[in-house]
């Protein structure tokens, strides 16, 4: 990917939470680059640091969380050097975010319209009320809400879950941001509604040319919408690649485990689902070696001693596992 095509570049980002019990390395050195008009999925179980990583991009990290290293570059600008006011103007304008639970993410005491228009007016003081309202109605129609004019004056509790998530999407896109971060946007919804929302996001992405970072623990959703996928485990990206590579040639044992534990409708229905055993590691006391080693079925002695480096399989497909090096050594140099 050429530099000019890069919308956002994250390099060796480290985020820690300083709790009374000690430092929790929620994000421990992750790097990726995302191009314009690209959709990247970030997959991982809860606590893997995927949301924390997103929050640090948009500057929503709250005490006791702090970025302690690395860089985030957005269109060539260093986001970590922004002042709070610059960050505020950046949020919602260039990058916006939608969240997991649409039931609690809208302020219950203000109308949907009021909250939509606020997203506009806090970045554009000069816009008139009528224009803001017209734009908000337009956005509501765009996300498929009927009677938008009437709906504008209703309160969140008068909306269904799916409707609220649509309103959230409208609110996130109202300033035409270049990047949308979607933090588990469909997790709290019914399955049928999930599909509708995904469909909507897909079509809006095409229409508005927005890049998306799509955070989820659901691989099925990833397959649906993403171009590239980062698989996160315990604060690190363990495997990254485009969606086909990840699904059809998964390399990291964790990714394989995830795929094996996912029900697939397209394959043999009798195939058993295999869960990944064990529980995620305690980030307060991370192991010395590979974070996944204690749960890995194919764990080697080195895995318990050293953190694995990334192996590059070309076309942006990388994976951090000692097994790759073992294979390479067994095969000898230049096995290609």
């Amino acid at each position: 990917m050429r530099e000019t095509d890069t919308l956002i570049k994250v390099e060796d980002l480290r985020v820690s939470f300083f709790t009374p019990a000690g430092e929790v390395k929620a994000v421990d050195g992750i790097s990726y680059a995302l191009g314009y008009n690209e959709v990247m999925g970030v997959v991982g179980e809860s606590g893997s640091g995927k949301s924390v990583e997103a929050y640090s991009i948009i500057g929503l990290l709250q005490n006791p969380g702090r970025v302690i290293g690395g860089s985030i570059t957005f269109e060539g600008e260093d986001l970590l050097a922004y002042t709070p006011e610059q960050m505020r103007q950046f949020r919602g304008n260039k990058v916006s975010m939608i969240f997991q639970n649409p039931m609690t993410c809208l302020n219950p005491v203000y109308t949907i319209g009021d909250q939509l228009m606020e997203a506009l007016t806090c970045h554009d003081k000069s816009i008139s009320r009528q224009d803001a309202r017209a734009r908000a109605i337009e956005m509501l129609e765009l996300v498929g809400i009927n009677n938008a004019d009437k709906r504008m004056d209703q309160y969140p509790h008068e909306f269904s879950g799916g409707m609220r998530q649509r309103a959230m999407i409208a609110m996130a896109l109202i300033c035409k941001p270049k990047l949308l971060i979607a933090d588990e946007p469909t997790t709290a919804l019914d399955v049928t509604i999930q599909a509708q929302i995904l469909e909507l996001m897909k079509s809006l992405q095409k229409q508005e040319n927005t890049s998306i970072i799509f955070i989820t623990h659901n691989l099925g959703v990833v397959a649906e919408i993403c171009d590239r996928v980062s698989v996160m485990y315990a604060g690190k990206i363990v495997e990254q690649g485009n969606v086909n590579d990840i699904f059809y040639q998964p390399l990291h044992p964790y990714t394989r485990g995830l795929l094996a534990s996912m029900p697939r409708l397209d394959e043999d229905a009798h195939e058993r689902l295999i869960p990944i055993e064990g529980t995620p590691i305690d980030l307060l006391n991370p192991p010395k070696g590979c974070n996944f080693a204690p749960r890995c079925k194919d764990c080697r002695k080195i895995c318990l001693r050293e953190k694995p480096p990334y192996a590059d399989f070309g076309d942006g497909h990388i994976s951090a596992c000692w097994l790759h090096f073992m294979e390479a050594m067994n095969k000898g140099v230049g096995a290609e």
Binding site: L60, G92, S96, C105, N107
Partner: peptide, 21 residues
């Protein structure tokens, strides 16, 4: 609350966040 996080993500000023939301 989550809705405050939403408002922050929208880029609402802290003062407005506290006094309004």
């Amino acid at each position: 609350q989550d809705y405050i996080r939403t408002a922050r993500a929208k880029g609402v000023k802290t003062r407005v966040l506290v006094l309004k939301h």
